[in-house]
Design a protein around this nucleic acid. Structure first.
Length: 347
DNA sequence: TAGACGTGGAC
DNA sequence: TGTCCAAGTCT
């Protein structure tokens, strides 16, 4: 079995530190030590690419609207979800607000510095706890995310699957021991992540420019890291209907599951053996392990009460203020565009 | 512990 | 167009 931590840990840590001071990027959350600002970035970046968070303005909008724990704690959930809309994994937004409530209510508005306390906050797992403590307070807490897992498994040429219990254990041990040699935990953790994000990327890693290539034992970087989990996609069909009156568009609010609190066109009731109303729009989207074909129909005659969710008529003015999942917002916009055209150019 | 949870970028 | 994947956490 390969040794762990990597050999030459002191040299690797020193080379990483130097590399980061020369090449480290200047993200907004690296220009502050405010734990709130850093936490928001960490939550947004979970399973989400930096370009999405940054170039589409999510981070800036959120910080402008909810600049601190106190503001977020008293915000209404609808505006919180609306501000997060388009980022996905909406549970993160709810956790963030719950967390803000806990900071204000149970911690005198001050973010804790103790790992166990931080770890117990809603939505904060092992990675995020270490990230906030090291980035905000320069505390010596190791972190392992997808980037760091890739770097460490390659440095050690370790084929243990990174998404297995054994693999995670080895990675955290390696990260922890490498961190012992760091001058600054903040810089060190940032450097390790950024190396994984840039040069030591999944596809076509740039080993030539790697600051720690001298000590890296990977034989074939395209085969490391190893992952176990394979996603099996399931095809499903979703049928909704569009019904507009002078009072507005009939929408329903999702209840009790996936996108609770989000608005959508109402579901078309199951009507086996009956013909479907005419189709207004068709689109395809993926959500977790499903591939969905979304059909928007005209309203079924006499099926006013077919939908199961809580619904009401929404005016055009209110539409932009309600949280809607991206595929549904798009489908609705497409249908509305269609309506406008047919109003202006009757056949 | 395996499965659920969103969306868009990259190729 | 299809597939894989990206700063994870919770149950």
């Amino acid at each position: 079995m390969k040794s762990q931590p990597p050999d030459h840990a002191p040299e690797i840590a020193a080379a990483l530190d130097l590399w980061f001071q020369q090449h480290g990027k200047d993200y907004p959350w690296r220009q502050t030590t405010d734990p709130y600002a850093i936490l928001v970035s960490e939550m947004m970046l979970q399973q989400t690419q930096i370009t999405t968070v940054l170039s589409r303005g999510f981070y800036a909008r959120w910080m402008e609207r909810f600049p601190d724990f106190a503001t977020l704690a008293i915000a209404d959930e609808e505006s919180v979800l609306r501000t997060w809309e388009g980022l996905g994994y909406y549970r993160r937004a709810r956790f963030l607000q719950k967390l803000a409530l806990a900071i204000v209510g149970q911690h005198d508005g001050v973010f804790p510095r103790d790992l166990a306390t931080v770890r117990s906050l809603p939505g904060i797992g092992a990675y995020t706890a270490g990230a906030v403590l090291s980035f905000a307070f320069d505390q010596a807490e190791p972190i392992v995310d997808g980037n760091i897992a890739r770097v460490l498994s390659r440095v050690n040429n370790d084929p243990t699957p990174i998404d297995s219990t054994a693999g995670q254990k080895r990675l955290w041990a390696a990260a922890s021991q490498l961190l012992q040699h760091a001058k600054s935990p903040r810089r060190h953790n940032s450097a390790l992540m950024e190396l994984g994000q840039t040069l030591c990327r999944t596809a076509q890693p740039d080993c030539i420019r790697c600051p720690i290539k001298t000590w890296c034992r990977v034989e074939n970087p395209s085969q490391i890291p190893v992952k176990i989990k394979k996603i099996v996609l399931t095809e499903i069909t979703e049928r909704v209907f569009f019904h507009q009156t002078p009072a507005g568009i009939w929408l329903e609010q999702e209840q009790g599951n996936r996108r609770t609190g989000f608005w959508k066109l109402p579901a078309l009731a199951e009507t086996p053996s009956k013909s479907l109303p005419p189709v207004l729009h068709r689109s395809r989207y993926g959500i977790t392990r499903y591939k969905v074909t979304l059909w928007v129909h005209e309203k079924m005659p006499d099926n006013q009460d077919q939908s199961t969710g809580e619904g009401r008529y929404i005016s055009m003015a209110e539409l932009p203020t309600l949280p809607m999942a991206t595929p549904h917002r798009r489908a609705l916009n497409a249908v509305l565009t269609l309506q406008n055209f047919s109003l202006q150019d009757p056949p």
